[in-house]
Design a protein around this nucleic acid. Structure first.
Lengths: 235, 235
DNA sequence: CCATTCGTTCTTCCATGGAAGATTCCATGC
DNA sequence: GCATGGAATCTTCCATGGAAGAACGAATGG
């Protein structure tokens, strides 16, 4: 692992590709993939040489990541990749429950066209989940499940809610990957998704709220004991 | 307005007072007080000289403020103090509704001691609201109301929820100040607060959720038309 | 053998200078 | 009078150097 992958400026008609953005994306990817494992402590200097840039853009990218809660910078000692304790995962799930329930409610309150269009997209994602499951491709299932939940918040019409959901989802990514192989085959998810889609399609905000909430609550109640059982100090 | 107020390092046993933190606090205060009005566009250089420091810590503070959504930095053109449109206030309220309802629910699910202690604090804040109202001191009322809602999220045991609530509350501060004098005397708030406190004290998460939510929903439904009526392009 | 002190080294923090992009405004041409 | 071109000026963006602080280890004293 000599160097970190830099986002390629593939497009010749280069858009706003600043070094800070590059460093931010590369670091986030490295954290997600556990190339930088939780608890790892490195220096900005080291990251800078790996990315082939100077310390400044790395420093600024790390500020962003710190605000978003992915890393902590320990004064004069380096940057720490935040490990997740069980309580962190619990907190994250509580946020997700609140945010997605609200998003589903808002989505179900939009116009018929918007609801219908969103419901179609959600249905496609759910179908992709089932296909992944049928082929025993858990990675594909997880990706489609992610897409479903991302769509739910993207289409609700509240950008702040979307941003919050993305931030906590990023934090939870490692825990999600860990439990993916530990839990039993997630066959009930598709059913819950379809029930939610129906409430959205027919425009019932209250029912959409309840179903989105119940779906995430049961996910939490299944995953938290699982994480506790494996007894990891942190993820 | 020659210079911005810098947070004084009054305490001689100086804690971790970095220039970045100073700049961050000073800028946030200046934005809240509309010393930097919404839509204002300034340069980091200008802010740096006003604060009596170099450009670097100002630049880094601005990155933090940008992530939190208070400012936007326009490449090579300066930093913009984000104005709030009606839709922004709507978004913010939707977030607050979801977050506070969850916080109230969590709080009502804590141990009897924690609930009781929190309920006492919430009751004190509510009493302060009534006193402010009795003396026609709207500023005092608003401060106590802020304290109530801050306490609610502080005591729920979820740090991420707290951080989210603080971020959106910061964004909404100007709108709140604007509508404070426009709306009718907020006499019903104290009653709603007491109902919520009772649900918390007696440990009813579902009821606490509903009451916290209803309280913020009615606030939104009162304030949004008010803002629309004054017809401000942005706040 | 253990505790303490001091020096070395590594880190972030902050200042500053140069580069490149965006805007403004004035001169020029028609 | 009006559009156009271009220079001057402003801005952020990035690199780099020095300063201060934290951690580590070796030398020293008991």
């Amino acid at each position: 692992m000599i160097e970190l992958a830099r986002a390629e400026p593939a497009e010749p008609g280069n858009r706003r590709g600043s070094l800070v953005d590059e460093a931010y994306a590369a670091l986030k990817a490295a954290i997600r993939s556990t190339e930088f494992p939780p608890g790892y402590q490195g220096s900005e200097q080291e990251i800078a040489v790996r990315l082939g840039m100077s310390r400044t853009p790395v420093h600024e990218a790390i500020i962003r990541l710190q605000v978003e809660g992915l890393v902590r910078v320990l004064s004069k000692r380096g940057v720490l990749i935040c490990p997740l304790a069980l309580d962190d995962v619990r907190e994250i799930y509580e946020v997700i429950i609140a945010v997605e329930a609200m998003a589903a409610e808002l989505l179900a309150g939009l116009s018929t066209e918007q609801r219908s269009s969103a419901a179609d997209e959600l249905e496609a994602a759910t179908a992709a989940m089932e296909q992944g499951l049928a082929q025993d491709d858990l990675a594909a299932w997880a990706e489609a499940d992610d897409a479903f939940h991302r769509l739910l918040v993207e289409r609700c019409g509240n950008g702040r809610l979307l941003r919050i959901a993305q931030t906590v989802t990023d934090q939870a990514h490692r825990a999600r990957m860990l439990t993916l192989r530990l839990r039993s085959r997630p066959t009930r998810s598709a059913r819950a998704h379809r029930a939610l889609i129906e409430a959205i399609r027919s425009g019932e905000p209250g029912e959409a709220h309840r179903r989105a909430r119940a779906h995430r609550v049961s996910a939490r109640d299944e995953l938290l004991p699982l994480i506790e059982k494996v007894g990891l100090r942190h993820i």
